[in-house]
Amino acid sequence: MVQPLDRLKESASQTAGPYVHIGCTPNFCGIEGVYPDDLGRTMLKPETKGERIRIVGRVFDGVGTPLKDALVELWQADAAGLYPSPQETRGKADPAFSGFGRSPGDMASGEFVFDTVKPGKVPFKDGRPQAPHVTLWIVARGINLGLHTRLYFGDEEAANEADPILSRIEHRSRVATLIAPKTVEAGLPTYRHDIYLQGDRETIFFDI
C-alpha cells in the first residue's frame, strides 16, 4: 500500500435537459420579474473598445436538424487580447467588456447570436501568439457533458495558419470546422458558424 492521494472526484455531469433556459435565461423563456435581465445577454457597452462583430450560427444534430433547446456560451479576450479575469496577469482588460456571452438560440430557427468585439491575440503556453478566437461551450438535452469548442475567424488566414493549436491538428480537413467565414450583414461584420454534433462535418470538440 502507498499513501492515499486524498483527491476528491469532480462532480459528475448530467445533461442540462430540455429546460436549461428556465435556470440560465429565464426572461427569454417567459419567466419575467425574477432577474432584471438574462446573464450574458449583453457583452458590450457604448464605450467598449474594439471592432464590433456579430457571431451567428446553429447547432445541428446527427440527422441534420438544428437544435432548438441548446444553450451556447461564449468566452473571449477583449480587443487587446486581455481576459477580464483575476487569472489575467498581463494587464487590465477593458472594464467596459464582459468577455462572457450566453445565447439561448432562437425558438423557431435555433440560431444563436453574439454581438461582441473581435478579440485580440492571446499567447499560447510557450509564448507564441494564438490566432484570435473565442471559446464556445454547448449544452442541451441529449448532451451528457458540455462540449468545448472554439471559433477562429476566416479573415485571419495568416494567423490561423501559424496558430499553435490549429497547426497541430492531424486531420487537416477537420480544421475548417473551427473557422467561421466572414460576411457583412446589415452593415456589420458577421461570422457564420454552424456547429455539427455528428456526421461528415462533425465540429472539432476539445478535451481541455
Partner: peptide
Amino acid sequence: TPGYKTSVTRSPQKALIALDNTLSEMTGPV
C-alpha cells in the same frame, strides 16, 4: 448513451482533441 435516446443523435462520434489549457481555458467570467 442509447438508454437516454436523445443522446444518440447529439453525441460527437469522433475523438475529442486534447487541448493543453491556455489562458482561454484557465480564465473565466467573474
